[in-house]
Design a protein around this nucleic acid. Structure first.
Lengths: 112, 112
DNA sequence: TGCTGATGCCTTGCATTGCCCGGTATGTTG
DNA sequence: CAACATACCGGGCAATGCAAGGCATCAGCA
């Protein structure tokens, strides 16, 4: 009975994942699978397949730009770059995240 | 373009709301509308109607128990009490929330 | 040459869950 | 009796992470 442990993390990821992805792109360009691996390492992503729909959405929203790797030895990769709009959205999220996190902390820390 | 501000908070609430509700019940018994008001004050709930499906789910899962207010002057109220299972789930969430919050903070704080 | 596996991209259908809108019932007040 | 506030509840909607699988290219090897 009760609530499954996995579900907890799954629901926490919602609303955070896409901005953590944007934050990753602050540091440089990455391609899909690499982004997926990095996010998975930090427990923010369950499977690699999850990241592609997200990346498509970010691209359609104009938060990231893509560029195919030309004249590369391996498989062609699609590299993602943060746009100014993406950078602004990331900053906006940070301002929402701070108070939100503090609110939750306060409620949880109240002594029984 | 970009991502709407409202959506950000909406998605953040998912996965947090039900545990903040449980945390409220740690301090005593409350009835539906009162719970809704308290959560709304802290920006964790958009409308009062949202809380009732959630409360039903928590009841079916055995995390809370309910008791109708007897011999009260006003309308009958359904009071919610935290069960042992609910208390345990709340504790389990706290242990997940801590590391999760730290991870997100770390990613966001990385300097560009 | 032809098979196998790894890499990398992507799509489809699903489940969860908060939100919005509306409905019911009871008590108080003019 | 009408109107309003209180208090409960349900149904349909939308967003989004997840699981599973498909397709294409290249390297290694017999």
């Amino acid at each position: 009975m009760g609530i499954a442990e996995d579900k907890v993390l799954t629901n926490l990821r919602k609303g955070v994942l896409e901005f953590c992805l944007l934050a990753l792109l602050r540091d440089g360009e990455w391609y899909g699978l690499d982004i997926a691996r990095r996010l998975s390492e930090q427990g923010l992503l369950a499977g690699e397949g999850t990241v592609y729909p997200l990346l498509s959405r970010l691209r359609r929203s104009g938060l990231v730009t893509t560029e195919w790797s030309e004249s590369d030895v391996g498989r062609p990769r699609r590299y993602y770059t943060l746009t100014d709009l993406g950078r602004e959205n990331l900053r906006a999220f940070s301002e929402v995240w701070g108070p939100f996190r503090r609110t939750v902390d306060t409620i949880l820390e109240t002594k029984p």
